[in-house]
């Protein structure tokens, strides 16, 4: 099994505060990986380090075998959709696609246009006037049409209503299957991940508490009384102090 993301004793310090400390994690390829953990567990910091947005203070991180964000080629292989899916408010939907086409050598214009059409986004509409769900979908479209090998999404559904969450999860699962894409997405709400993820990593206090295929994890923790929910499983591991 190849690895898309590997962190070894990874740490990031802001001033005197450690946002992530001694984090060691291995994310296998070919999965939609859910990264779960409480607020402040270091999920965003880990993902930003993986996307090359930040430089590690200590330790080492490799993504698809390379140093994150070091070269245009490496950048082209990793997609990153930041928290709250920022877009240029003054640019239209079509201009965002143009931005993607101009800045990415592997840009798939057909995919981008088809997705925007299917979502019913008006190409002439400014991003600032889109709903939260539409913004998230447009940001996801930019991430997908870049045709990365790994797509990282940081709390992509946090600001969405339940309906938009469901649509987003569906679109993501579909795209991952279609394009043989590895995906890592984070959330502090386990139910968000349940429908899309086939692999789960529980991060708490910078440490990996649990990692594995969702099905296998659930099977291994089967109780006599019946099937354990993913949420209960995660909670069990979050509550267990080392």
């Amino acid at each position: 099994m190849t690895t898309v993301l590997r962190a070894q004793a990874l740490g990031k310090r802001y001033g005197r505060r450690w946002a992530l400390r001694e984090c060691t994690v291995d994310v296998p390829a070919g999965h939609v990986v859910g990264l779960v953990g409480p607020n402040g567990a270091g999920k965003t910091t880990l993902l930003k380090l993986a996307a090359g947005r930040l430089r590690p203070t200590t330790g080492d991180v490799t993504v698809l075998g390379g140093r994150p964000g070091s070269t245009p080629a490496q950048l082209a292989r990793v997609g990153f959709v930041a928290q709250e899916t920022p877009l240029y408010a003054g640019l239209t939907v079509a201009e965002h696609l143009r931005l993607g086409a101009r800045l990415n050598p592997r840009w798939d214009d057909g995919l981008a246009r088809a997705r925007v059409a299917r979502l019913g986004l008006d190409p002439g509409r400014r991003a600032g006037r889109l709903s939260g769900g539409q913004r998230a979908q447009l940001a996801l479209t930019l991430g997908l049409a870049k045709r990365p090998d790994l797509l990282i999404l940081d709390e992509p559904v946090a600001a969405l209503d339940p309906l938009a969450r469901r649509d987003f999860a569906r679109g993501l699962a579909q795209a991952a299957a279609e394009h043989e894409l590895s995906v890592v997405l984070s959330s502090h709400v386990v139910s968000d991940l349940e429908k899309v993820c086939d692999y789960l990593i529980v991060l708490a206090g910078s440490r990996v508490r649990l990692a594995g295929r969702t099905e296998e994890l659930l099977a291994a923790h089967r109780r006599p009384g019946g099937r354990l929910s993913l949420e209960d499983l995660v909670l069990t591991y979050l509550e267990a102090r080392p």
């Binding site: 947005r53 950048l75 990153f80 930041a82 709250e84 940001a139």
Partner: peptide, 17 residues
């Protein structure tokens, strides 16, 4: 302020460029 640096840095362009 608007977080768009994260969007543009997620494209295949280095920050220096």
């Amino acid at each position: 302020e608007s977080g768009t640096h994260l969007l543009v840095w997620s494209q295949s362009v280095t920050r220096t460029r």
